[in-house]
């Protein structure tokens, strides 16, 4: 089984953002970047499928500037066999169709049986790259995947539906699956894995060479979210805050 995992390097959830002077993106300098959350689960699922099958190759692919080597190395350290880095110089690509096209063109001759991506990127939140890539490459697609079983040359996946419902479906291979968080417990790289990763191949490609389409959408300015409700902020030392909060509980909200 040949498995491709798509990983993205994104700002951490606690990052404080400021909009770049031209309003098109954020100021990246000094921001903490990390692996996109659901991509961690996609990596783990790929490694577990390979372990269960007892054979196979796991290839990690990431598109972005040089900084995304960090998540590529992380995936290699966890056990991916090799990597492809699609380099992009533009500050930020905000078009899921051209991202997916670049990823699809890069992997189209590899003959992957499975492509695993995260459910959505925490920075752009499109939830589209893996599905569009599947459509372009003629694969079956499923999102919100919370379980996988390989069966007689097909894959059975468990999908999350709304409000605590689930559904199994059987799909033909090759398939592109967008993985929802929580379906496994992602491993940490071992020291041996980290050392071993240094010897693994990272092939480079350039976005301009692999993307042959025009984008379908772009950001036309970013702004800070505005508040909806009047919030009463409780301030002071920890003791003062606690005293005021107890008062609010008892006298405003009347909790008992």
């Amino acid at each position: 089984m040949k498995i491709c995992i798509l990983v993205k390097h994104v700002p951490g959830s606690e990052a404080q953002f400021s909009v770049s002077p031209d309003g098109s993106w954020i100021q990246e300098t000094g921001l903490p970047f990390e692996m996109n959350e659901s991509d961690n689960y996609a990596i783990e699922e790929a490694l577990q499928i390979r372990e269960k099958m007892g054979e196979g190759e796991v290839v990690v692919v990431s598109l972005g500037p040089d900084r995304c080597q960090k998540v590529i190395r992380e995936a290699l350290a966890k056990g991916a066999d090799r990597a492809i880095h699609i380099k992009e110089d533009t500050p930020y690509n905000t078009d899921p169709y051209s991202i997916a096209t670049a990823l699809a063109n890069t992997i189209k001759d590899e003959g992957f049986d499975l492509v695993l991506s995260g459910l959505q990127s925490d920075d752009l939140g499109f939830g589209q790259a893996g599905v569009i890539l599947g459509e372009i490459l003629g694969m079956t697609t499923a999102t919100l995947v919370v379980g996988t079983e390989i069966q007689d040359g097909k894959i059975k996946v468990k999908r999350e539906l709304e409000s605590g419902w689930f559904q199994w479906q059987t799909m033909e291979l090759p398939a592109s699956l967008a993985i929802q968080s929580g379906l496994n417990q992602p491993r940490y790289p071992s020291l041996k894995g980290i050392m071993g990763a240094k010897k693994k191949e990272i092939k480079e490609a350039s976005f301009r060479d692999v993307c042959d389409v025009d984008g379908l959408q772009a950001f036309n300015g970013l702004s800070v979210q505005r508040a909806e409700k009047q919030t009463e902020m409780i301030e002071g030392t920890v003791d003062q805050v606690v005293t005021k909060l107890v008062d609010v509980f008892k006298n405003e909200i009347r909790i008992n």
Partner: peptide, 23 residues
């Protein structure tokens, strides 16, 4: 922007080569 729409509308976007502005 339901779970079902997340699941198939990106395919419509790719088939039509038209943008899917989501969420």
């Amino acid at each position: 922007h339901s779970y079902q729409v997340r699941d198939y509308v990106p395919r419509v976007s790719a088939k039509l080569k038209r943008p899917f502005l989501n969420d």
